[in-house]
Design a binder for these strands. Sequence first.
DNA 1: GCCCAGGTGTTTC
DNA 2: GAAACACATGGG
Length: 222
Amino acid sequence: MKQDKKKTAKTLEGYYAAMLASFGPQGWWPGKTRFEMMVGAVLTQNTAWTNVEKAIGALRKEKLLTPERMHAVEEGELASLIRSAGYFNIKARRLKNLTARLLENSGLDRFLRKDSSGLRGELLSINGIGPETADSIMLYAAGKSEFVVDAYTKRIFTRHGLIEENAGYEEVKALFMDNLAPDAAVFNEYHALIVRTGKDYCRTKTPLCGECPLKGFLPAGR
DNA sequence: GCCCAGGTGTTTC
DNA sequence: GAAACACATGGG
């Protein structure tokens, strides 16, 4: 099925081109430093980014946006500062788990320099970091070419019939990893464009397919 | 008042 | 394994 694979690659490139033409580059990740980016990745779990921004603002005000400072602060205080991001008790614990691991590894720099498979395994072994958060950190903080799959990715591409309804994370990720050249800059922009498209046109309740930049790719009858 | 948002861990069949 | 549930705020 070599021909089939080539066709899939063309299709995925078409989606990318259409979104890029419609929205332009998204300039992700919206964070000043790599650590801030990692914090944002945890805080945005199942949460709107607008709520995350407020929490990060509070952390910045308290000068806690370094692994050392954040790890030193009391967990209850950390939780109250990130209250606006929701799940604040759980997320405070998760941030602590992350900073602990960074310090154990002689800092963020050394940690992110690990080779890809080692880094991903290490991230996944931290309680509170699952596949999406791990891949986000790999791609946006470490610059590794890992494709990030989120709820919008699943929704858009199942709707378009390119993945099964019940496909798991790794299965969806493989669609992109197996059919696109590994390029961190492209993966970065691709994921950001998917989120943008999902937010604007592919909400669960009120899809706006008629105006979506991807409407030309919708299979007939959908 | 209800639904949803850039998930993940735990519990339970 | 995989389904069901808990975790929580803020905007539409």
